[in-house]
Amino acid sequence: MTSSRWTDLKPRVLSAAVLIALALAAVWIGGIAWRAFISLACGIMVWELVRMVDTARDKSANILGVLAGLCALATPYLPPAFALPLLLLPSMAGFGRMERGGVTFAVFTAMILLAGYGFMKLRSDFGLIWMLWLVCVVVITDIGGYFAGRSIGGPKLWPRVSPKKTWSGAIAGWVGAAVVGLIFAGTTHAGLGLMGISIAISMASQIGDMAESTIKRRAGVKDSSNLLPGHGGLLDRFDGMLGAALFLLIAGQIVDFPPGLE
């Protein structure tokens, strides 16, 4: 019984390791490599989203996925005021091509594109270290939730939508995020407020995860696609990153980031 809890661990670890290695390489190189990686990811996630919410729209999924990727790739080269319409263009274009799920598609696609823009902006404006901080917070949240949820168990977070998510896993993710925030605060001389921001980012990543779980539940599918062994699709792997990046993009207008640094 106990071993069955961990049957998906090996494929999860292997596929996650490959994906993380590619992402870290793109983050390290920065520039066009990072923008291309994020734009490709945005396009694939929109493609997966269309196939989930409207299963009869394979051709539309291809068109809207390519459009989303191209729009994401173009935005860093434009003034922000002119980038904003491009971030919403795929959502608008999808209304006329969707037989059902148009509103879900439009809202979640806007979230994907805005989060992608947030990733690019974080890397270009604040540098490698803060991009790594965001990735570490989300990854530790996911790892803490996975192991604490299966080892400790306990009350479910939202059993109707995601029966495997537990409060113990969620809290473990917050604790892990706080530790990441403390470590980065000490190494970068940022203020201890980074711990609070890290916990909020952890929560935002969990909300992104639950939002995608809701879409899958309504669509009656287990995974967004089968691109990643043990994880499903790219949207399954990046749902937490989307919530985190989108929240940071908004929170950056409310609090000083990085906190304590001039």
Rank of each mutant, 00 (worst) to 15 (best):
residue 245 A to M: 07
residue 236 D to G: 03
residue 212 E to G: 05
residue 172 A to W: 01
residue 48 E to C: 06
residue 70 L to S: 08
residue 194 L to E: 11
residue 232 G to N: 02
residue 252 G to C: 13
residue 113 L to P: 00
residue 56 A to M: 05
residue 262 E to I: 15
residue 80 P to Y: 11
residue 257 F to K: 06
residue 24 L to W: 06
residue 249 L to I: 09
residue 236 D to V: 11
residue 208 G to H: 03
residue 81 A to E: 13
residue 219 A to Y: 02
residue 59 K to W: 11
residue 68 A to K: 04
residue 65 G to V: 08
residue 221 V to C: 05
residue 89 L to C: 13
residue 240 G to E: 01
residue 8 D to N: 15
residue 187 T to I: 11
residue 193 G to C: 11
residue 210 M to P: 02
residue 7 T to C: 06
residue 186 G to A: 14
residue 19 L to Y: 09
residue 197 I to M: 11
residue 106 A to F: 02
residue 34 W to Y: 15
residue 27 V to Q: 07
residue 130 W to T: 01
residue 201 I to N: 01
residue 45 M to N: 05
residue 167 W to M: 01
residue 209 D to I: 01
residue 154 G to V: 00
residue 128 L to V: 03
residue 172 A to P: 07
residue 242 L to E: 00
residue 162 S to C: 01
residue 81 A to Y: 06
residue 80 P to S: 11
residue 113 L to S: 00
residue 235 L to M: 10
residue 9 L to C: 08
residue 213 S to H: 04
residue 49 L to V: 03
residue 150 R to F: 03
residue 103 V to K: 07
residue 217 R to G: 04
residue 56 A to W: 06
residue 203 M to K: 07
residue 133 W to R: 07
residue 217 R to V: 03
residue 255 V to Y: 12
residue 188 T to E: 08
residue 26 A to C: 10
residue 46 V to A: 13
residue 208 G to I: 02
residue 176 G to A: 04
residue 114 L to F: 04
residue 124 S to C: 10
residue 120 M to F: 10
residue 28 W to K: 05
residue 116 G to S: 13
residue 213 S to W: 09
residue 157 L to G: 00
residue 93 A to N: 12
